[in-house]
Amino acid sequence: MTEIIGIWIAAFLTLCMFSFLYKDNPFYKFAEHLFVGCSMGYAIPLTWYNAFIPYAYNPLFLKKEYILIIPFIIGMMYWLRFSGKFSWVSRYPIAFSMGIVGMGVPMSMHANVLVQMRSMMLPLNNINTILIFIGTVSILCYFFFSKAHTGAYGKFTSIGIWFMMVGFGASFGYTVMARISLLIGRIEFLLEEWLHLL
């Protein structure tokens, strides 16, 4: 019974959302606000059971690792974010969490720049490798604004534009696919689970 009620509620809320296609209306607004509340409501119990209890409560209170009282207090400083006078205190846990960004400097450089560059240094022994090489270099030149894009250099950077247009075209094609897939999923739900037509 609860399953059937659930499906009817889900179908009603789906239609509330679709009603926005006609125009903005109270049904859509209701569903939109309900969605925000429900989504945020998940974070609290999930964090409590899956993170706070195993990582903070158990080690400190059950295993009696009392040194962890310090990060516990630092964590509680987040709560002062919303107090007008002491909101600056919440910068301490934020700063502590941001420290790991340091690791991102070499690692992001490695993953996103060095490895990508290394694969550009392969022997140019076939037409595709040559095209990838020309395309990448011309795009990098296009985004180099310290030199005017004129003459032979300008012509070379315009090759970059062509490559980018093909890339954007591919992304657009895929974007159409993505959006349609989401719609198919919802219509499948209405036809199969709600109306049993499939």
Binding site: V113, I134, T136, I139, G167
Partner: peptide
């Protein structure tokens, strides 16, 4: 062409992130 485009843009993004 898509790979070249995404790599060219990605290198810029990667440097920007670093």
């Amino acid at each position: 062409p898509n790979l070249a485009a995404k790599r060219g843009i990605g290198l810029g993004v990667g440097l920007g992130m670093t």
